[in-house]
């Protein structure tokens, strides 16, 4: 199918880092089933480094590919760097997404931030709340 780039299809068909981390240090889940996509990110953190990351996604091809790409981009990176990951960077790394699928890359960015926030809160680590804005999916609750 030519709806997606080869890179999106590669990550969709052969997703990297699918699965669960038992006793993960941080877990983030964003989206909702009503909207048709949910992403869940599990982090293993050693010191300040994301030593392992896994994801589970309920969603379309680009949601799965965005999750896969996002995990690759943050694996082995310090938390401070993972926090700077933007949805645009995820989409660019996938050689682009169709305009109406850009929200999938937004979900990936938000899922990672949610997992890091969870890690900070579980461990009582102070963090800049400005970095964690409300999920863009909140509006979905309104439509039925």
């Amino acid at each position: 199918m030519s709806l997606y780039s080869e890179k999106v299809m590669d990550h969709f068909k052969h997703p990297r880092n699918v699965g669960v981390i038992e006793n993960a240090d941080g877990v983030g889940e964003v989206g909702n089933a009503k909207c048709g996509d949910i992403m869940k990110i599990y982090l293993k953190i050693d010191g300040d480094i994301i030593s392992d990351v896994k994801f589970e996604t309920f969603g379309c091809g680009s949601a799965i590919a965005s999750s896969s790409m996002a995990t690759e981009l943050i694996k082995g990176k310090p938390l401070s760097e993972a926090l700077t990951l933007t949805n645009k960077a995820v989409a660019e790394a996938l050689d682009g997404l169709p305009a109406y699928k850009m929200h999938c890359s937004v979900l990936a960015e938000e899922a990672i931030k949610a997992a890091i926030k969870d890690y900070y809160e579980k461990n009582g680590i102070e963090y800049d709340r400005e970095l964690f804005k409300e999920s863009s999916c909140a509006h979905c609750e309104d439509h039925e």
Partner: peptide, 28 residues
């Protein structure tokens, strides 16, 4: 599961099908 990813994987298996998922129509 979500219909669009199902369609894409079925297409990989040589199966042409369709879905009423929002993601296949571009709407919410």
């Amino acid at each position: 599961i979500e219909g669009e990813s199902l369609l894409l994987l079925l297409d990989e298996e040589g199966i042409c099908a369709s879905s009423g998922s929002a993601c296949t129509s571009g709407s919410l």
